[in-house]
Amino acid sequence: MTSAVQELQDATDLIDELAARRLGVNRTDLRCLSRLTARGPLTASELAAAAGLTGGATTTAIDRLERAGLAVRVRDTADRRRVLVHLTEQGRTAVEEIWGPIAAEAQTELLRFSVAELELIETFLRRALHNQARHADRLRKGSDEI
């Protein structure tokens, strides 16, 4: 089981590397693009928190995403003091072209499982995510303790 998880992580890492290369961005920018895809428009500080970045690193990533035509800063119509980062149409198209077929095939595979099996898979994934987040915090802090 552990080797299957490691192989999945490696395969995901390869897709991310190839996607970043195809889009002309780096992996940090790709992580920001992922958060914008998953959560919709975010302020720079919300994006920083979601991507686990400093404010300065996030500003630089947003600048690169804008130069690549994948994201744009837009004043919030409800609160003119706020600026939200939105995916552009080009950004949405690129995400769909790269990850759309992967998601469609994954959806087809998931349909093979019963509701009980899907609940078990979801439990495992949520626990694995929690584990990864804890260890990311540990590594960020430079500590050996979790």
Rank of each mutant, 00 (worst) to 15 (best):
S3N: 09
S3V: 05
S3T: 10
A4M: 04
A4E: 13
A4I: 00
Q6L: 13
Q6A: 13
E7L: 08
Q9S: 11
T12D: 13
T12H: 08
T12V: 12
D13K: 14
I15P: 02
D16S: 13
D16K: 14
E17P: 00
E17Q: 11
E17H: 08
A19M: 04
A20R: 06
R21G: 08
R21K: 14
R22T: 12
L23V: 06
G24M: 01
G24W: 00
V25L: 06
V25A: 07
N26F: 02
R27T: 09
R27S: 11
T28Q: 13
D29E: 15
L30D: 01
L30P: 02
L30C: 07
R31W: 05
C32G: 07
L33P: 02
S34Y: 06
R35D: 11
L36K: 07
L36V: 12
T37E: 13
P41V: 00
P41E: 02
P41R: 03
T43E: 01
T43H: 00
T43M: 02
S45M: 07
E46M: 05
E46F: 01
L47Y: 02
A50V: 04
A50T: 06
A51K: 09
G52E: 09
L53W: 09
T54W: 04
T54I: 07
G55T: 10
G55Y: 07
G56E: 12
T58G: 09
T58W: 02
T60V: 15
T60L: 15
A61Y: 02
I62N: 04
I62C: 05
R64W: 03
L65G: 04
L65W: 00
R67Q: 14
G69A: 10
G69K: 03
L70R: 01
V72L: 08
V72E: 15
R73K: 12
R73D: 01
V74L: 04
V74Y: 02
D76M: 03
T77N: 03
D79M: 00
R80Q: 08
V83L: 01
V83H: 05
V85I: 14
H86D: 05
L87A: 03
T88L: 06
T88A: 08
T88W: 03
E89Y: 04
Q90E: 12
R92L: 04
E96K: 10
E96L: 08
E97Y: 00
E97I: 01
E97C: 02
I98N: 03
W99L: 11
G100R: 10
P101E: 02
I102T: 11
I102P: 04
E105T: 11
E105Y: 03
E105W: 03
E105D: 12
T108N: 10
T108E: 14
E109P: 00
E109H: 11
L110P: 00
L110W: 05
L111V: 06
F113V: 06
S114L: 01
V115R: 15
V115I: 13
A116K: 06
L118I: 04
E119T: 10
L120I: 09
L120R: 15
L120P: 01
E122I: 01
T123W: 09
T123E: 15
T123I: 05
T123F: 07
L125P: 05
R126N: 10
A128M: 11
A128F: 07
L129Y: 11
H130Q: 14
Q132T: 12
Q132C: 07
H135N: 15
H135A: 09
A136D: 11
D137R: 14
R138H: 05
L139T: 09
L139W: 05
L139Q: 13
K141W: 03
K141C: 04
S143W: 01
D144S: 12
E145V: 13
E145H: 13
